[in-house]
Simulated scan of single mutants.
Amino acid sequence: MALFRWNPGTSDLLSVQITGLKGCHQRRDWSYWATRFATRRMLQGLPDRKIIIVPAPSKNHGKDHAYQWAEALANAVGGEVHCCLRKVSNRHQRGANREKRVEVVLELDENSSVVSEFWSEALWVFADDIVTTGSTALAAFEALGSPPHFETWALAHRTLTCGD
């Protein structure tokens, strides 16, 4: 589920907004968009269960824009953020075609016990600012052990350009 469909080059205002959110000092902006997202998601009915929001792991293992999105979503829906995934490879998704994007592999952080404690009861939400092909979300789903209640929440669903 994404708040926006984003086609860079044709939606310039959205492009400026999304690229402006990158970085570590935009908490208020993330909160605004998360509240809008949560309102839309709640209209569909949130399940009556614990919501665990797992941000896309950052390249430098820090609290980047995906973490800020996850944190803002957790505040908006009363969920919990757990950084329990890590990237196996350091391959970048930006600029990659579909073939290269499917090669992303995530794994569960060995220090995390939250998955075994709430695997079947919780709604597991993979939070990423931009979803393009869904390969990272699929890798998260698999790394979490394919939980029965899983969703991906993104600010934008981005189209690939150049015919990919």
Score class of each variant (00 low, 15 high):
1 M>L: 07
2 A>E: 11
2 A>L: 00
3 L>S: 08
6 W>L: 05
10 T>F: 07
12 D>P: 12
14 L>F: 04
21 L>F: 07
24 C>D: 13
24 C>W: 02
32 Y>Q: 04
32 Y>K: 12
35 T>V: 01
36 R>I: 13
44 Q>V: 09
45 G>T: 11
46 L>Y: 08
48 D>K: 12
50 K>I: 03
58 S>L: 05
59 K>C: 00
59 K>Y: 11
59 K>T: 15
64 D>L: 12
66 A>E: 06
68 Q>C: 09
71 E>S: 11
72 A>F: 10
73 L>V: 01
76 A>M: 01
79 G>K: 04
84 C>H: 04
86 R>Q: 10
87 K>P: 05
93 Q>D: 07
96 A>H: 09
97 N>H: 01
98 R>V: 02
98 R>N: 12
101 R>L: 10
101 R>K: 08
102 V>A: 10
102 V>S: 15
104 V>H: 00
109 D>I: 06
111 N>F: 00
115 V>W: 02
117 E>W: 13
126 F>G: 03
130 I>Q: 02
133 T>W: 08
138 L>P: 02
141 F>Y: 15
142 E>H: 09
146 S>A: 13
147 P>T: 12
154 A>R: 04
155 L>D: 09
156 A>S: 03
157 H>N: 14
159 T>F: 13
160 L>S: 15
161 T>S: 13
